[in-house]
Nucleic acid binder design. Sequence first.
DNA 1: TATCGCGCAATGCTTCTGCAATGTTGGGGG
DNA 2: CCCCCAACATTGCAGAAGCATTGCGCGATA
Lengths: 224, 224
Amino acid sequence: MRILLVEDEPELASALKTALRRYDMVVDHAASLLEAGDFAASENYDAILLDRQLPDGDGLTLVPKIRARGNATPVLVLTARSDTSDKVDGLDMGADDYLAKPFAFEELLARLRALLRRPANVQTQVIRAGDLAFDLGHREVLVRGEPLTLPRRELLVLEALLRRTGRMVQRSSLMEAVFGLDDEIQSNALDTHVSRLRRKLAEADAKVEINGVRGVGYLLREIS
Amino acid sequence: MRILLVEDEPELASALKTALRRYDMVVDHAASLLEAGDFAASENYDAILLDRQLPDGDGLTLVPKIRARGNATPVLVLTARSDTSDKVDGLDMGADDYLAKPFAFEELLARLRALLRRPANVQTQVIRAGDLAFDLGHREVLVRGEPLTLPRRELLVLEALLRRTGRMVQRSSLMEAVFGLDDEIQSNALDTHVSRLRRKLAEADAKVEINGVRGVGYLLREIS
DNA sequence: TATCGCGCAATGCTTCTGCAATGTTGGGGG
DNA sequence: CCCCCAACATTGCAGAAGCATTGCGCGATA
C-alpha cells in the first residue's frame, strides 16, 4: 500500500510517516501543494492524506485538479477547521473523508482502512500460493498455519509478487511497490531483499519459489 | 473503464448497468456462461463482475477458463451464498474479491475501485496467436496460461512478429525492432535469435510457427 | 545500548548474445 | 535436369552483462 502524505508541518509529517510505516505502508511525503501535485501525477497511490493549510494555498484545491486528470484515488482531508460547512466543501470538491485536527492516530488509521476497504473486523482477503497464506488485512504470512515473520521490505516484495502469482512482475513495478520516492536507492537493494526472502521461503518450505527473469523482473511460482 | 457484467437476472443486471454507467464505465452484459466466455475472449476488460448462479452453470467455472487463456482481468464474484468455504473456493479459483448478495451498491463500487486501483491489475494490451498470449505491458508470454520466459532479444523478435501475425515482416524492420538503431550488428544474430525462439515455441507446443521467406523476411503463422 | 533492518558494495556465478563455422535449402542458370 | 551459389538454419563458444549472495556498518527501534 502506497500513501501520499501532504503536510507542511515537519513534526506531524514525520510522526505520521513513522506511524504509517508501522502498518507496512510506503509513504511519500509532500510539504507543499506544488510538490503534492507532481507526486500525485507521477505515481499511483492507494490513498492521499491531505492537509488543508499549506504554504502555497488550500490543500483542497488539489482534489479537483487530480480528479480532472481522471485520478480516483481516495482522499482523506486533515484540517484544523472543523465546522460543518468546511466538511461539506471538502466532500463537494471530491474528497472522500474528512478528519479534524487534533485527531487520534487510531481514528486516522480506521478511516484510512475504511477508504481502502480493508476493515479489520470484516473477513480480510487472503492470497494463497503453495503452502503460503498472506493475510492482507492483518499483514501476516502463514506457512501451513505457522506464522512466518518477515521484515517490512521483504513483506512488500512478497505481497507484490503474490498479487501476481505465476506471472511476471516487472522490476520497475516491484521497485514502486517496495520503495518510496525519497528512499533514494542506488544499489541492488531490491535484489538483496529478493535473495533474503528466497532463503526464508526455502527454509520455511513454503512450496513457492521466486524466479528472476533477466532484463524483465521476477515471478513467484508454486512448486510441488 | 470497461466492465463485463455477467448476471442472468434481467432486473438486477439492468440496474447495475445503469448505475455503473453513471461512473463512466462502459458495461457489456452477458446473461449466460457461454456468452460471458465469448465476451471475455474477444475483448479486453478492466474488470469482470460475475454472478455464480447462471442458467448454464456455476459462474465460478469461468474464472479458471479465462485464466488459462492468459487473461488476468480482476474478477469480482457476486453470490447469494456467503459462507466462508464458498469465499475460499472463489478466491482459490482465481477470483479477486467476493461480495454476498444482497449488497449495497456503494460497497460494490468501492470494491470495484479497489480492484481497479491495484497497480498489478492495470489492464495491458495482450496479443494472442495459437496458444500464445503476449502481455505487452508486463513483457510476459503465456502458453495456455503457463508462463514462458524468454530472453530480451527473443522477446523482441516475438513481439514484432506477433504484431503482424500471419503477415510478412521485412528483415530490415525486424532488425530495427530487435536491435534498435544504436546496436551495430554485423552478423547473423537475428537468424540466431529466430532459431532459438523457434525451438522454444516448438518445445512449449505454442501452436505457432515462424516461416522464413528468402530475400524478404519472416512471418509467424498459427498452426492447428 | 543491544538488536534488527536495510542499503551498499565486492564477489562469484548464470545466462544471454554476438559471432563464426558448418549444415541445409531452394532457385536460377548452364 | 542438375549443379552451384546465395540465403537461411543451427550450434558451440567466449566475452559481457545482469543477477545472486554475503558480510559489513550505519541508523533506526525498543
